[in-house]
């Protein structure tokens, strides 16, 4: 698939799959809160799906523990191309407060390529929406670059 075709496929609504890679659940409940009436992310076409095979975006929360690493990799490969990875929360970006732990394999970008980091412990729902929008913008800029190049 060429890049232009690939990008065209993603310019519509983004479906996200959420994987918990050793999170404390704070980010997870905020992701869920993002979907509920107050923040209502679905009005932007952002939707949480139940299987990686339907997803465009992989939302990863948590520090990436040793035991879950394999599973995160597997899920990453199950998401069909083209895909974006968004790390939600400080732990996934930098290991956060769990720096010295023996059970950590993270941060997430040591295992899978990451496109957007959303800092915060946990990030507010607005920040999560903003992060997904950033991912969108990344696609748009890639699109422009691609158009300019061809």
């Amino acid at each position: 698939m060429n890049t232009a075709k690939m990008l065209k496929k993603m310019s519509r609504s983004l479906w996200a799959f959420h994987i918990n890679a050793g999170s404390c659940n704070a980010c997870d409940i905020e992701i869920l809160a993002t979907l509920t009436p107050r923040y209502d992310a679905e009005r932007f076409g952002i939707k949480l799906v139940g299987t990686p095979r339907h997803a465009d975006i992989l939302l990863v929360t948590g520090t990436l523990t040793e035991k879950i690493r394999e599973n995160v990799l597997r899920v990453y490969h199950q998401v069909p191309d083209p895909k974006l990875v968004v790390v939600v929360g400080g732990c996934g970006s930098t290991k956060g407060v769990f720096q010295e732990s023996y059970a950590m394999a993270g941060p997430v970008d040591t295992c899978i390529p990451v496109d957007v980091y959303i800092p915060g412990c946990p990030p507010r729902p607005e920040a999560i929406i903003y992060g997904v929008v950033k991912a969108w913008l990344k696609i748009e800029s890639l699109e422009k670059d691609n158009a300019a190049a061809s």
């Binding site: 050793g22 948590g62 520090t63 035991k67 769990f98 732990s101 059970a103 950590m104």
Partner: peptide
């Protein structure tokens, strides 16, 4: 154990105040 983060192990290397914020997580 999939999200076992070794918090009890990490907590031994922090001071009393830092531990509060670690345990919050």
């Amino acid at each position: 154990g999939y999200t076992h983060r070794g918090i009890e192990h990490v907590a031994r290397e922090r001071n009393f105040i830092q531990v509060i914020y670690l345990l919050e997580r």
